[in-house]
Amino acid sequence: MSKKVPQEQYEKTISYKFRQWLNGSKDPYLDTVEMKPQVPFCETESERLQREEENQQLAKKVYDLEHNAEIRLFGKMYKVFSVIFCLFLVTMLLIGVSYLPTFGHPENPANNEVSERYIEKGLQETGAVNIVTGMILDYRAFDTLGESHVLFIATCTVLILLRLDKKELQKSNEANDRIYEPKNDVILQTAARILVPPIFIFGIYIILAGHLGPGGGFSGGAVIGAGLILYLNAFGFEKTEKFFTAKTYRRLSFGALACYSLAKSYSFYTGANHIESIIPLGTPGAILSSGLILLLNICVGIVVAGTMYTFYVMFRKGGY
């Protein structure tokens, strides 16, 4: 057991300063560059009145249309010239576009041997009837890994900027702009009770049938997110918190992203060489076919659904 040191001696040590820097309570500019300690901003009544008076006088002079012929002329010419400028831009862009090669020409740079290989041997090598899904989740699964990480980073950014702690949430209840919104609409609640389960089932269907038809993780996740938003709008935040809290989102998104990374991050080490997967490609057209694509679809779907719901909730309330 170490000796307990008196408080003043402790405040001179390095560990205390380190702790302060971690907390954010140490102001790095206070003792080095000469600055006064910060005081919260407030205005007395006279200052406020003076500021508003000055603003009004300035506005009167600037927007004085009667004595200022130049401003009137500018106003008229502005409209004409803006239309001319827009038309000019449009024509320049259209002329640029007309230089592109015709659609479907065999000598286009897009029609090279890569797309031929994907189309001819796609079904054989990936086992997915939907060639697009086979491409983004098997041939180029590494790129989709990056995409899922981008979604995750976007959610992290929004959480950093917009999330309020519990204390701030309680404080902000006065400035809460959701007090005046209509709540507990009986008609909407009845409709939501009937409609939300089919929406979830439809979203799950789209995710699972990603390799058999158009769909996949991204669109299915968006539909599930929309279903969650509908439930939230009908029933309010308290009821939704019973099954979707911050913990749920954390565990789901972390679990899904970790799963995807484990499956496909070997490309960091092997470069462009593909590792043959142990999972056999079943009969094309069955659900349990095409190797890892089903699992990856589910992971991507979970991440996208959580992302959509988190964005909506952060922008509305600042907390789950």
């Binding site: 209509p182 609409d185 008609i187 909407l188 409709a191 009937i194 409609l195």
Partner: peptide, 15 residues
């Protein structure tokens, strides 16, 4: 789906 959701939409717009 539309026969369920369209009356609810018009109720909300009227409100």
């Amino acid at each position: 789906f539309l026969w369920f959701s369209s009356p609810v939409s018009s109720h909300l717009i009227a409100r």
